[in-house]
Design a protein around this nucleic acid. Structure first.
Lengths: 124, 124
DNA sequence: CTAACATATGAGCAATCATTCATATGTTCA
DNA sequence: TGAACATATGAATGATTGCTCATATGTTAG
């Protein structure tokens, strides 16, 4: 625990390869905290099976909430909650028509990201 | 709550656009549950700022655990725990050299995914 | 062998999350 | 207006997560 302080000075040049300068250089190129948080949030939006399935359905066409509950075989409230977070992340948008609310994708890149990831997962 | 049963039969053709057949067709094309879970897990691996920062550092070069703790300004245990989950997801691999363990990326696609996402987040 | 070091890991804890339940809002139809 | 419907939302709850603390494992030097 108290080994952190002495490490910074000299040891690092001997134990790990690279000098302090090299480390500083890596730090310079690293993503900043805010960007890291944004990026994590973006991935987090897709980090749940229910949301993945919703996006997968909406990739095919616009759908109302009820149809999504049927497709996902889930309660209306659960679907609605997830749609809200997808909406907050600007992944999904809504269109109201009478009593019904239709949801569709709000981001042109999603299909590409989706297919790319599917392919990546595919060969495992 | 009890409105789900009657919905399935006729209402859907009137309230939401599309017939039951159309819905069945969407369901057919939807991602299956297992693939949805895999995909969610993959995204989950990148859904935390600490892991994003680790990957960001490793994108530049191989690094030992200690150097990562310095770069991230975090406790050794926290970094080690996150490295383990990245390792379990095959995002990161390790190479042992004496006392030191060096980590590096284990997936060629990560840089592409990373840059693509950064670009996506960028214009907001 | 022992001491110092580098990393890994299990338990505990606070925070976040996904779902359910109950209810609210808003729309259409009679 | 009132009833039925479609969706949204707040509270409660169980599960998961990310971190800390303490300690274990493994390595090297003396």
């Amino acid at each position: 625990m108290a080994q952190r302080q002495p490490m910074m000075t000299e040891d690092c040049e001997t134990t790990c390869f690279g000098t302090e300068q090299d480390l500083a250089c890596v730090k310079e190129e690293m993503i900043d905290d805010q960007a890291a948080a944004s990026m994590a949030d973006w991935f987090k939006a897709f980090s749940d099976p229910t949301r993945i399935r919703i996006v997968s359905a909406l990739l095919q066409r616009e759908l109302c909430v009820h149809d999504l509950t049927v497709l996902l075989d889930m309660g209306q409230s659960a679907v609605s909650h997830q749609l809200r977070s997808l909406r907050n992340m600007r992944i999904v948008k809504r269109r109201k028509q009478g009593k019904t609310v239709f949801y569709s994708l709000d981001d042109a890149h999603i299909e590409q990201i989706f297919l790319q990831t599917l392919q990546h997962i595919g060969h495992e």
